[in-house]
Structures are given as structure tokens and as C-alpha cells.
Design a protein around this nucleic acid. Structure first.
Lengths: 199, 199
DNA sequence: ATGATTTTTTGCGAATTGGTACAAAAATGT
DNA sequence: ACATTTTTGTACCAATTCGCAAAAAATCAT
């Protein structure tokens, strides 16, 4: 894999720099994040940032995809769970809440749900990325519902796609509520009621 | 009411100017909206804007409260509805979707849900306004659930506060989904499933 | 008319924005 | 050693940002 590095070696690992940029966008949103802030967060100077990731929006979209990758892993985890639907959904929400409530300067919610919508109305690229991410959540959550239906643990006429979209909607709200400052207990109660109402 | 106007009369109606500013924030979010854009939208020049509404954040918060007033009216409407819970909730979602999908340049979702979270992590004032607005939605939607429970149309052990928060969560998601470009039919289907699952 | 009062208008200014040109630095290959 | 290659660092640019000071305009009171 690693060929001989030809020129001057990179002073920073692109992967960790991308994650540091992601954290900055996550806390401040796209428009409020300056290139200076990104440079400070990554320890890189602006030209290096530009060479490595392109312009500001390109870096935001790369951060977006990085976060979407984490999300994809969590959805895959839920999709391949052997546990019953109730437990799968409960654990999925529990893990999400843990992430949404974490953060060095207080709860940050979800990178995607909390930073993309503000830009989505006027920026077609961010809107497309957001729409795709929402669709992936919907699709990913449908798997455990479809499984439960196939096993007869849901009514035969249950619309698993619609139920998954409803379950995803609660995830969106958890993200916003966490960032608004609701308590972890309030979020868990919402997750509990959701599991009870949908399973 | 109208006392004798002392000095030079105002060239613009503060109420319509506030609404025009709101529309600008709604489309672009807080950080992406410049004072120049606000001045262009309202037809006022910057010092007049400043004299009438204070600085940029103050104007945003006034716009926020203006939108929250509309929201409050919709919640009041639902709270005082004589119709059964299913119809009340269905109509509430229908009206919301209508607003979320409207907009001169495409769907804008909800002013509060789509513009406040991005700023909420780093701005305590906006975070507080967002948290209060979310709480008002939760409280407002609890009324029809509590009514239905009192009339025996919900199980006696139903947690109406938790159900209302779940119903509110779908509203949040509808706002994001609309702004992401989902179709009106998809949103209505989500609302339909929600009514079915919760009532 | 004249003065008082309020708003609008013009223009400014200090700071920040995203983005880039260019030279110095640090590695490899010959 | 010397040239090549890639990245870093410094400095800069044009444009935009928010906010304000000061003058001009439009009304009312006398």
C-alpha cells in the first residue's frame, strides 16, 4: 500500500485533521465556522487545508460523509441485531443519545440534523447530502421492523417502511432536543415511549 | 391608540419589516444572513434596522418570537379542537406541512427547527429560545392527548405527556424532511402513520 | 416661519471573511 | 552534492462583515 513518500512528508494525519474539522463544524455549523477556526482546530494552516480538502464547503461535505459513515455503522449494527425489535430500537436510541449528549462544550446533538438544515434551503449540494442521509436512516431502520414483521412480532398489515420513518423521526428530534439542552433522562423517556408505541 | 406622531414619520411598517426579516432568516439561517440582505429584504437601510430592532441577533430573536407566535396559534387551535384526537392531530400535521412546503424558493421547513439548532450549541440565548419553543410544542400537544384520555379514548395508563412529546418529535422531523426536499406525499404518509400509531 | 423631534440617508471604519501566490523547508532519487 | 518533488509557512488580496457617527430630511408644536 504505502509507496515511497516522494516529497516533504505531511505534518498532519489527514484522517485526524478531518475529524477535528468535523468537530468544529459540528459545534458551530457551516456558516459560522471560519477557515481560521478550522486551521486552528486542525493545526494546519490555510493553504494546507485547501490542498488537502479543497474549499470550505468541500471540507464540510467531507466531514458530513465522515459522520454519515459513523451513522451507517450504527444502522448496520441495528440491522444485523439478533435481538428482538424492542431491544434493537432501544439500544439504537441509547447509543445515539450517548453521542448527542457528548461533546467538550456541552451537548451537540447530531452533526447532520443540527447543521445541515440551516444551509439546505439555499445550497443544493448540502440539501442533496441531507436528503440522502435521511433516506439512509429510513432504509436502515426498516430492516429490524421488516424482520419483526416476518417473525410475526408485528401485525401482518404493518407498514414497516412507514414505521421505520416514524422511528427515524424520533431520532431527528432527539438530536435537536439534545442540542437545545434537554436532559438525558428526558431523551431516554422519549425513546422509551417510542419503543412502546411502535413495537 | 395612535398618539400624534412627533418627528419624521417612519417610512416602513415595523411589523411587515419584521416579517420580511423573518423570511430572510428562514431561508438562509442566522449566520448566513447578512445585514445587507436584511436591509435589502426590508427596504430599510442598516441604521434604521438597527434603531428599530437592535443588532442582528436581537432581530433574529424577534423574528423567532414572531414565528413562535404563529406556532402558538396553531397549538391553541389544536388544544381547543372539539374533534377527536385523530382528526385534531391529522389537521395539525396537515397545516404544518402546508407551511413547511411553502416558500418562494422551494420548501423551507420550520423556521425554528431548521435555523436555531445550528446556532444553539454555541449561543446560549438562541439555545434558550429553542428549548422554550420545544417545550411549548410539547405542552400544547399534550392537551388533545389528555382530553382523549379523559374521555376514555386512550388507555387509562397512557402517558399523555410522553405521547405528546412523541407527536411533537414527528413535527420536528417533518420540518427537516421538508427542507431536505422530500415530497409532500411522503410527509403526509409519515403523518398518517403517526396518527395511526399514537391514537 | 422657526425650533424641536424623530427618522432616514450617506459614508465610514475596523475587523473578518474565503482564497491564493510565492518562497522556504523537508523529504527522496540520482 | 544536486536536482526533484511535495508540503509547509508567510504574506497578501479583494470582498464582505457588522456596527456607528454625523448630516440631511420630514414631520409636529408654537
Amino acid at each position: 500500500m504505502s509507496e515511497k513518500a516522494r516529497g516533504r512528508p505531511r505534518a498532519y494525519d489527514p484522517e485526524v485533521a478531518l475529524w477535528q474539522a468535523l468537530e468544529t463544524f459540528w459545534a458551530n455549523g457551516f456558516s459560522r465556522t471560519s477557515l481560521d477556526a478550522l486551521a486552528a482546530a486542525t493545526g494546519m494552516n490555510r493553504p494546507s487545508l485547501y490542498a488537502a480538502f479543497g474549499d470550505k464547503k468541500s471540507l464540510y461535505l467531507k466531514s458530513f460523509e465522515c459522520f454519515a459513515g459513523q451513522l451507517h455503522a450504527a444502522l448496520d449494527n441495528a440491522a444485523h441485531s439478533e435481538a428482538p425489535l424492542e431491544a434493537t430500537l432501544r439500544d439504537f436510541y441509547r447509543d445515539a443519545i450517548e453521542i448527542y449528549m457528548s461533546g467538550p462544550d456541552g451537548p451537540r446533538g447530531c452533526f447532520i440534523i443540527c447543521t445541515a438544515p440551516a444551509e439546505a434551503a439555499m445550497d443544493a449540494d448540502i440539501r442533496a447530502a441531507l436528503k440522502a442521509a435521511l433516506a439512509e436512516i429510513d432504509k436502515g431502520l426498516e430492516v429490524p421492523f421488516a424482520k419483526a414483521k416476518a417473525e410475526g412480532r408485528l401485525p401482518p398489515d404493518a407498514d414497516t417502511a412507514a414505521l421505520a420513518r416514524l422511528a427515524a423521526s424520533v431520532l431527528h428530534s432527539l438530536a435537536v432536543r439534545a442540542r437545545a439542552g434537554e436532559t438525558k433522562e428526558a431523551l431516554h423517556a422519549l425513546a422509551r415511549q417510542t419503543v412502546q408505541s411502535l413495537c
